[in-house]
Design a protein around this nucleic acid. Structure first.
Lengths: 107, 107
DNA sequence: TTGTATTATTGCAATATTACGATATTAAAT
DNA sequence: ATTTAATATCGTAATATTGCAATAATACAA
């Protein structure tokens, strides 16, 4: 007991939940927002900006990356974290399709 | 350590994360979907439908309810869980506004 | 190669979530 | 008042998440 029973739900449902989980921690929302705000997506003042330890930020970045939301590129010296806007859009559409479908037949 | 540092983020960011958390468990997504599908929002076959213990479903319903997404009414004998579509719409718009704002200035 | 700056990984402690059985609570029916 | 049903709450065990310090790994510069 204690573990989510992922196997009893449809793929669609698990997918929605997995995507939502990415956005379900304020640090990750803040990171996404910050990354997108940067002029040329310049990098890791994220740690200073947000005020968590570097290890913690790195961990959150991994979660964001696993969702396909990062597009890493190199620009001179340092790694550049960049939002994968296409994927981001994709997730938005996934959400909207769930919301719209759910709204349809309700009392 | 281990607890989310909610106080270092803006209200907006915390709000997004809180809303996402509701949808971040497949059982809750399934419940929302099921509730909306029901003809007149008739009630708690949710337990049978989803296949978790009654206590567990009740727990998830509490989370959904705390987000303002339930509109309980009585219809004859038994409690009727009903989706609060207005609130649901509100959350959708919150998400979309975050997504849209974030998409704007990116490389 | 050696140093330096940046990011990732590991190990661990604190906290949160998930799930369930058992036990209330509530409301209608008898 | 009792019974019966539906739902909520409590206590507890299992698992997951969050956060950090310490330690790798990586890449560029000297």
């Amino acid at each position: 007991m204690g573990a989510s029973k992922v196997d009893i739900y449809s793929n669609e449902i698990n997918q929605i939940a997995a995507v939502a989980k990415v956005f379900s921690h304020p640090a990750r929302v803040a990171i996404l927002q910050y990354i997108s705000k940067q002029e040329a997506c310049i990098c890791n003042d994220i740690v200073e900006e947000i005020g968590l330890a570097q290890a913690t930020i790195s961990q959150h970045l991994k979660v964001i990356n696993d969702a396909g939301l990062l597009k890493g590129t190199f620009e001179g010296k340092s790694l550049c974290y960049c939002l994968n806007v296409e994927r981001f859009q994709e997730l938005q559409e996934l959400f909207n399709s769930f919301f719209n479908k759910t709204k349809l037949n309700c009392c």
